[in-house]
Design a protein around this nucleic acid. Structure first.
Length: 391
RNA sequence: GGACAGGUGGCCGAGCGGUCAAUGGCAGCAGGCUGUAAACCUGCCGCUCCUUGCGAGCUACGGGGGUUCGAAUCCUCCCCUGUCCA
């Protein structure tokens, strides 16, 4: 298996740690936030801009890439990195989240998931094995097994069934990966930065907010053995204390020496709090989607930039932000761009939000390196007004 | 000067006797977005009041007058706009 993970610093007062994730396409400093580029594109951003804002690794999605342009085409092109001209690490998600988000179009069976394409209605079958093959052939650095992500709230029976199914699928995924990774490997690994490292496979813990099912899932997934461990099925509508509680519980059960990935989370506050619980990796559509919808993140909380109260505001989105958008453009102008429907509104807001997230994670890492994470956490929560105040 | 067609809430535009404070769309305002079917979605959008309710009152479908139990809707005169003919 691929990936190596080196823990380089641990916080004394919390479970936070800083480390380095060694992947074929380079090293990633953790804790890390991974911008979401579902269809092989972080919406409203160019790859140059992703590098500018400090993205180390991005996420893409198996289901969406299989719909368009198709994993075969990506493979023929030389892999996803070459296709999208992104030479840095890529993690691909399996499509497990689409089991939930596209549930009206999907049908889960023991063998896998049938999806009717959300684009043209054609049926597509995803099995644990085929999902491994698709991700390997596209040349992703970190791949995820097919899992079943369920809604909140779900009944105990539903959760139990999804945990057990996800466990059986994890077993199949691991087996297939071990037996076939070498021969199915696509992409441009030969010319990647760390050619000696192969792709890696993470396991996904499910179980909703049920403590006993989470324990069962964590034990089972850990027993199978993966390069890293993800906590799935959270931030699907559960209360915050459940999010933090489950994260704390599961993170505490996962191996110390391997990366922990909290899937789909979250707000700036969620990230900082969950770093304190021992999480190393995050992804979330929030900074990019909210940006396009007119919400920007600042050190003082969320800001609805479309609001009339910024029509004459000559200040930057965030007074303390060093990003190019904040150095050049006013709130009034960006609000105007939203008002007139300019595409640059989405671009500038996305650039700022990703900068904000990635800069925050950089400061988190610094704090862990230099022993000030406890203070950072306290200061962050005080400053952000629990992360939800509007300014 | 004549013949048609029209004048509806900030704008466009339905309605053509009661269930109309009046469908839609746009603009405006507010809110929501957590492994992206999302540059999306939801709510509000005449005025006032309150026990915030399929609430009450007021004002409103160019203007005046009329028919009718009841008119944005029918009649009549006037004003205005567009197209065509002189």
């Amino acid at each position: 298996m691929g990936l190596k993970f080196t823990v380089v610093a641990k916080d004394e007062g919390t479970r936070a740690r800083a480390g380095i994730l060694h992947t074929p396409h380079g090293d990633v400093e953790t804790p890390v936030f991974m911008p979401v580029g579902t269809a092989g594109a972080v919406k409203a951003m160019t790859q140059d801009q992703l590098e500018e804002v400090g993205a180390q690794i991005i996420l893409a999605n198996t289901y969406h890439l299989c719909m368009r342009p198709g994993h075969e085409r990506v493979r023929e092109f030389g892999g996803l990195h070459r296709f999208m001209s992104w030479p840095h690490p890529i993690l691909t998600d399996s499509g497990g989240f689409q089991v939930m988000s596209l549930k009206g179009l999907g049908k889960v069976t023991e063998d896998g998931v049938w999806f009717r394409s959300h684009l043209d209605g054609t049926p597509h079958f995803f099995s644990p094995e085929s999902v491994m093959e698709f991700q390997l052939s596209m040349g992703a650095d970190i791949i995820m097994p097919l899992d079943e992500c369920v809604d909140y709230p779900s009944s105990h029976e539903t959760l139990k069934r999804s945990v057990r199914l996800t466990g059986r699928w994890a077993e199949r995924s691991k087996k297939f990966f071990v037996e076939n990774a070498g021969k199915l490997q696509g992409g441009d690994f030969a010319e990647a930065g760390n050619p000696e490292i192969g792709p890696s496979l993470f396991g996904i813990v499910q179980g909703g907010t049920d403590e006993s099912l989470r324990r069962e899932s964590a034990l089972e997934i850990g027993e199978i053995g993966f390069d890293g461990y993800a906590i799935g099925g959270l931030s699907v509508g559960e209360p915050k204390d459940e999010l933090y509680g489950v994260t704390e519980q599961v993170a505490g059960m996962l191996p110390e020496g391997q990366p922990r990935y909290l899937m789909g989370v979250g707000t700036p506050e969620d990230l900082v709090r969950c770093v304190a619980l021992g999480i190393d990796m995050f992804d979330c559509v929030m900074p990019t989607r909210n940006a396009r919808n007119g919400t920007v993140f600042t050190r003082e909380g969320k800001l609805a930039i479309k609001s009339a109260r910024y029509a004459q505001d000559s200040g930057p989105l965030d007074a303390e932000c060093g990003c190019l958008v904040c150095r050049r453009y006013s709130r009034a102008y960006i609000r105007h761009l939203f008002a007139v429907g300019e595409i640059s509104a989405s671009m500038l807001a996305t650039y700022h939000n990703l900068w904000f997230y990635l800069d925050m994670m950089k400061r988190v890492r610094q704090a862990i390196y230099f022993g000030g994470f406890g203070n950072f956490l306290a200061g962050f929560l005080a400053e952000s007004g629990q992360g939800s105040r509007s300014v």
